[in-house]
Design a binder for these strands. Structure first.
Lengths: 205, 205
DNA sequence: CGTCATTTTAACCAAATGGTTAACAAAAGT
DNA sequence: ACTTTTGTTAACCATTTGGTTAAAATGACG
């Protein structure tokens, strides 16, 4: 290609395949051959486009992490009333993750596998979350008497838990409670409003 | 040994080592050599006590699953007022998982890796959860007017999420929010009472 | 066309890994 | 004591796996 043709087809194919396999099997479980097969190409071609497994993984992981974390960080920095912040976060985050329901488990998993890699690659400079502002906002609302005396950190953890956990536990919910794809989507759709309602009911003075 | 001596030292050593390695690296990531090293024995001895990796894994996984699930099921079947049920569950479950903080991620992970294995081995006969009773109890409380009109399934999911998720996200919380082991323990200790308070504040009429 | 860079492939390689074998040590049973 | 069973080890094997090589297509461009 002279400069940059429109058809990155092969590289794109690889990235799509790699994402699928990595998210499904994790860094250790993923096999280069599987990715090659999934992309419909030769295994050597993988190393032609991406030097090695680690490099390829990094691209996929970074893309996943950079999709999940900035949205969380938004609620820390946004200039919005607390309740509205909570409502928008739950709605937007569930919408976001709905497109890739297995991303959270994948990311959590890899952080668990190598916390320092995560710290160095993802957290370095880029969108470093500053919870302080959000926590301070909660303290402020407590002072003005709009919400009860709840510990800010727990409120934050509660919101994140209720929003993210169902995705992490998705296979269990499906196998255990006999939830099919359709039902899962419906329940998560409900949770966009159920979680904020649940939280606000709990903390409003 | 004549019948069953008191020193199952070797087998116990293996199980301790296997648990450590499997929970840390998962089924695919775990290496038999690592387990052998961790147990301070020869690799062949592993296969002497446990036929193969899968068999050894099964023992570890089943033990983990059978530690985590029955407690959840308890809240479905227990004969207790709703609020008390919630309080006791959060307290007991956090206490339980605190002893093995990485078990939830491990189990969730393996269910994700092979949902049918989980369904067949763990869910088969043994302690099959019946959420119906718990959900019915919530409906009943709604009818008597002690709690608001919340969807039972969401209440259940909320409680499980807030209780379990922090353990799944533990490495992230530690690396991100700069939480050390001591702080994590303290926060989880608080959550034993914070979560029930949060829930009850939200749903009590 | 012919040349040069880019893309793609088949064959290959070294290391890692799950698992086996056969021999050896230590008890247990007699 | 000696025979048998149980526990343990070093060496080995077959397969898998990430990665390389060299050659063949493919295409850009004069």
């Amino acid at each position: 290609m002279t400069k940059k043709q429109k058809d990155k087809t092969t590289e794109e194919q690889i990235l799509i395949a790699a994402k699928k396999v990595f998210v499904r099997d994790g860094m250790t479980g993923a096999r280069m051959q599987d990715i090659a097969d999934e992309a419909g190409i030769n295994k050597a071609l993988l190393h032609y486009y991406f030097k090695n497994k680690e490099k390829l993984f990094e691209v996929i992981f970074m893309e996943a992490a950079n999709r999940l974390f900035p949205k969380i960080n938004e609620i820390f920095t946004a200039e919005l009333p607390l309740f509205e912040k909570i409502e928008r976060f739950c709605d937007e985050y569930i919408t976001l993750v709905m497109e890739n329901p297995y991303l959270p488990l994948f990311v959590l998993n890899e952080i668990h596998r190598d916390p320092n890699y995560f710290l160095g690659k993802v957290w370095k400079g880029k969108s470093t979350p500053k919870p302080e502002k959000f926590l301070a906002q909660i303290e402020a609302e407590k002072a003005t008497g709009t919400i009860k005396d709840i510990h800010p950190l727990h409120l934050l953890m509660n919101m994140l838990s209720m929003t993210i956990f169902p995705f992490v536990a998705k296979p269990m919910l499906q196998k255990n409670m006999g939830m099919n794809e359709q039902q899962f989507r419906m329940v998560m759709e409900q949770r966009k409003t159920e979680i904020p309602r649940f939280i606000i009911d709990s903390i409003k003075a």
